[in-house]
């Protein structure tokens, strides 16, 4: 019982601590590829500390949703993060929800962010919400299908079981095709859900091209800090999902100190590698036109579907 509490607390701490670092790392990689020196990788921490110290300005036309949304977004994303194995394959909270709960906890955060964008009644907020609704409705089936492709291979929808079995090489099909397809689909979904190029540009100043940024234009002070932290957390959760579901090797399978240490180290290397990959992709591609986003997310959906089909073909 005490061990479970300690592990859960450590899990939450690690997610909260490394999420700004991952954002800083992506920015640094981008800066380097743009021939710039760029900000320090620890810059997002300084931004968060400063924002928490500022007095928020709240529009007089907003309702309780506006002030409640940052807390809902932050806590639902953190709760989703606690379901994803990070350094130990059996997370203590695995009884609380499976992979489907994870997808819809993230969707809950997105839903409240969309409401918050609409709440202040500004034109850009509403525009951001409507765009986010398009993107979210297209990423959700792709995410669910890629998740099902993995769950079928492992014979369970519980993330801890999936990761544990893959780490111990139990019940692995010889052909990795379904996994590779699901990975590609989930990677595109991650780019879309975390609001990265080519779907959305987190560094944009142009209101007309914004998706995620347009919804949070009205926020300031600690509310903005919570939302920024939550979106970094969402990126971390999705990267952890990719790192540990598709390549869990190195993760601790029993709660022993040495194994936990190695598990943590391997995890950090894996997510840092994925973050660098996202940074490179952001420099290689231009942002897609809004109506082309549906094509890219359609590709993700088809890839995930093919992963599912391949699972059945290869089994028989």
């Amino acid at each position: 019982m005490i061990l479970a509490l300690v592990l859960t607390a450590a899990h939450a701490m690690i997610l909260l601590a490394i999420s700004p670092l991952l954002v800083g790392l992506i920015r640094k990689v981008k800066a380097r590829l743009q021939l710039r020196q760029g900000a320090s990788v620890f810059q997002p921490y300084a931004d968060l500390v400063k924002l928490f110290r500022k007095e928020p300005v709240i529009s007089t036309t907003t309702s309780w949703i506006f002030t409640a949304a940052p807390f809902v977004v932050f806590s639902s994303t953190l709760a989703a993060g606690l379901l994803v194995p990070v350094f130990i394959s059996h997370v203590p909270l695995s009884f609380a929800g499976n992979i489907i709960a994870l997808v819809y906890l993230l969707a809950l955060g997105t839903f409240f962010l969309m409401l918050a964008g609409l709440d202040a009644g500004s034109a850009f907020g509403g525009m951001g919400s409507s765009r986010e609704a398009i993107v979210a409705s297209l990423t959700e089936p792709a995410m669910m299908l890629s998740v099902f492709a993995i769950a079928l291979t492992a014979g369970s929808t519980n993330l801890s079981t999936v990761v544990h079995q893959t780490a111990l090489l139990q019940g692995i099909v010889t052909d990795p095709a379904p996994h590779l397809m699901a990975f590609a689909a989930l990677f595109i979904v991650t780019l879309a859900e975390a609001g990265r190029v080519p779907i959305d540009n987190p560094a944009t100043h142009l209101e007309l091209t914004m998706i995620h940024e347009a919804m949070i234009l009205e926020y300031s002070g600690r509310y903005l800090a919570l939302i920024e932290w939550a979106s970094a957390l969402k990126l971390t959760v999705l990267l952890s999902l990719m790192a540990n579901v598709f390549a869990p090797w190195g993760i601790a399978t029993t709660p022993e100190p040495a194994g936990l240490g190695i598990g943590l180290l391997v995890y950090l290397v894996k997510v840092a590698g994925l973050a660098v990959a996202i940074g490179v992709i952001e420099c290689m591609f231009a942002k897609l036109r809004l109506f082309r986003v549906t094509d890219l997310l359609g590709v993700a959906f088809i890839l995930a579907l093919l992963g599912l089909v391949f699972f059945y073909i290869l089994r028989s």
Binding site: K54, T204, L206, E207, M210, L217, E218, Y219, S220, L224
Partner: peptide, 8 residues
């Protein structure tokens, strides 16, 4: 920033 609300 794109909004005065985000600015210092």
């Amino acid at each position: 920033a794109a909004s005065p609300r985000h600015a210092d």
